[in-house]
Amino acid sequence: MTKIDKVLLTGKTHTTASKPGDHNSTVNLKLSGTGAKDISFEAIAAHPTAEQLFAGAWSSCYTLALGLAAEQSKVTLPGTMSVDIEVDLGIAGGAYFIGARFTVNLPGLEQDTASKVAHLADTLCPYSKAVHGNIDIDFTVNV
């Protein structure tokens, strides 16, 4: 897998579940449109980059997969769980690449249990499957 030498842009997300076991997710974006002065969607800067949109969609999908992985593993996710995803656009050897950093926070769970659930979610999430083996991903699980 090619590692990025120089990061050009980074899209960041921080996702929390509204309640343990909740399989619904909301992505709030602040967007602007031509001539649409009275329309506002909150959360990130106007004109989000592709990296922000990808990180937001991936984060939403992964968080739902985390709930499914916890159910399959008979584990209750902590109400304070969160997922941070950063997606980078960068250059290596004159070519453009994307890379990602995951930080899964599952306070109160044992490290081994948290890691198993987080990695199972990675195998269930369609976004994770789509990029598996194609981009460099750093994965951290905190308890």
Rank of each mutant, 00 (worst) to 15 (best):
M1Y: 09
T2W: 07
I4M: 09
D5Q: 14
V7I: 14
L8I: 14
L8R: 08
T10P: 04
T10L: 03
G11I: 04
T15A: 11
T15F: 09
T15Y: 05
D22K: 00
H23Y: 08
T26E: 13
T26N: 10
V27L: 12
N28T: 10
K30T: 12
K30N: 14
S32E: 14
S32N: 12
G33W: 07
G35I: 00
A36K: 08
A36R: 05
A36C: 07
K37R: 10
D38H: 09
I39G: 02
I39H: 06
S40K: 11
I44G: 15
H47D: 15
P48N: 12
P48W: 10
T49Y: 05
T49C: 07
A50K: 11
E51D: 08
E51P: 01
A55H: 04
A55G: 06
G56A: 15
A57R: 02
W58D: 01
S59C: 03
S59G: 13
A65G: 02
L66E: 06
G67M: 11
G67D: 12
E71F: 00
E71V: 00
S73D: 05
K74V: 04
K74R: 10
V75P: 02
L77C: 00
P78W: 00
P78D: 01
G79P: 02
T80F: 01
S82N: 11
V83T: 10
V83W: 04
D84A: 07
I85H: 04
I85D: 03
I85Q: 04
V87P: 00
I91R: 13
I91G: 06
G94D: 11
A95C: 08
A95I: 06
I98Y: 14
I98N: 15
I98P: 05
I98R: 12
I98S: 13
G99L: 00
G99V: 02
A100R: 01
A100H: 03
R101W: 08
T103V: 15
T103M: 13
V104G: 02
N105H: 15
L106R: 03
G108H: 05
G108L: 06
G108K: 04
Q111A: 13
A114P: 05
A114H: 02
S115G: 07
V117D: 00
A121W: 01
A121E: 00
D122L: 07
T123S: 15
L124Q: 03
L124K: 04
S128T: 04
K129V: 09
K129N: 15
V131S: 11
V131G: 08
H132M: 12
G133R: 02
G133K: 04
G133T: 05
N134I: 14
I137G: 01
I137Y: 04
D138I: 13
F139K: 09
V141K: 05
N142F: 10
N142C: 13
N142A: 15
